[in-house]
Design a protein around this nucleic acid. Structure first.
Lengths: 205, 205
DNA sequence: CCCGCATGCGGGAGTGACACCCATAAGAAA
DNA sequence: TTTCTTATGGGTGTCACTCCCGCATGCGGG
């Protein structure tokens, strides 16, 4: 599934093949976003995107399972998991959340333009909006698993599911607000309010 | 948009046309659910549904904007709004929620089988799951407006948006759990836990 | 350095969801 | 009954997405 266990060097050299793939992937995404911004999401066909990225529609679908995924795809869940794992085990749940969110905020605002245009698109295209809500579910699920691991409770625990759902819902609400404001309000401020709102929920775990 | 203002009789007689439409709509939905259960969602084409309901695909789309909507369509948002409006204005926000949810619970469990099969489908088909999450957003939006109206605050108030998102998230989590348990746990119990979890959030409004 | 192999790519054909249009039939109003 | 409105159905077209197959290219072993 992953690299051999005893790989000594930090990165075993990506190899030309891999580098090409990564590059093409980014090109497709960039061109797609550009076209969407220029002529609208529905008005842009996958064929046009493929052409702009100098590839074929077949290959487009090898990289992104659906047209929507070109916009939706990101690494936030993976980052959340990675960040959460390296927090001290005895930290309070709310404390962990704040810390993780601080890191997420930094990453997001580092690429502010890109993320704003993505989120503007998601907000304006119904199909994307719905799929984005689906992402929210996935994040809630991840959060539930993290909470279970942190508190030592069963992953099926209903209270954990409720808490995770509430937390993630306010977080996404905050990021949506951030995008709606065009990034003029710092994301950290909004996320702080969000966490503060659900703090009592987390405290009761 | 609606009936004339001064309509005297309680119901001005639906007329044959209306009754036929309502009937056809239900037939389409019933046949669709039946086929989905029998052979799976993706394996069932709109053409098959139309045929089973003795109509055309064209008409199918007149009744339901997409294939997904056959499963998703319901009146819960409308009911929530209607129920909320007739609650006393001086009732606590949490109290109103509990009251409204009690009514929703009754309606849902009255047609327990139908709702369970719908929700099982939504849980198992990714496309439906995502769209259902989108419904959650709509309900959150409605809730935010109700909260604004109740508290006299601006509909743009960020705190209200956060509270609404948290409340609706736990509610949907509860209903999903209900479906996952196959209706063996009473919905009222689950919803009570859900509201209890976010009670402090509502109290701080 | 070269050769065999795995892997990624492009093209073509097919399916099904959905949009648009127009003719017709069947309630409703006059 | 006649006229008007509204709903239906069929036809055509587009586009997202799938499957398959032949080809090219980077990769590892000799």
């Amino acid at each position: 599934m992953t690299a051999p266990i005893a790989a000594p060097g930090p990165a075993p050299r990506p190899g030309l093949r891999q580098r090409k793939k990564i590059k093409l992937r980014r090109t497709i995404q960039t061109e797609a976003l550009r076209l969407f911004a220029a002529q609208g999401y529905e008005q842009t066909t996958v064929e046009q995107i493929a052409e702009a990225a100098e590839t074929s529609t077949t290959t487009f679908y090898r990289y992104f399972p659906t047209k929507e995924d070109v916009v939706l795809d990101d690494d936030y869940d993976a980052m959340i998991e990675a960040f959460a794992l390296r927090r001290p085990r005895d930290e309070s749940v709310a404390g962990t959340f704040r810390a993780v969110l601080a890191e997420i905020t930094a990453v997001t605002e580092a690429d502010s333009e890109w993320n704003l245009s993505r989120m503007r698109l998601m907000a304006s295209v119904p199909a994307l909006d719905a799929r984005y809500a689906g992402e929210e579910r996935k994040t809630a699920d991840l959060t539930r698993r993290i909470l279970a691991e942190r508190t030592g409770r069963s992953p099926d625990d209903f209270q954990l599911a409720l808490a995770a759902a509430a937390v993630v819902a306010v977080l996404f609400t905050a990021t949506r607000r951030w995008a709606a404001e065009g990034g003029t309000v710092p994301m950290g401020t909004l996320l702080d309010q969000a966490v503060a709102t659900v703090e009592p929920v987390l405290a009761n775990l």
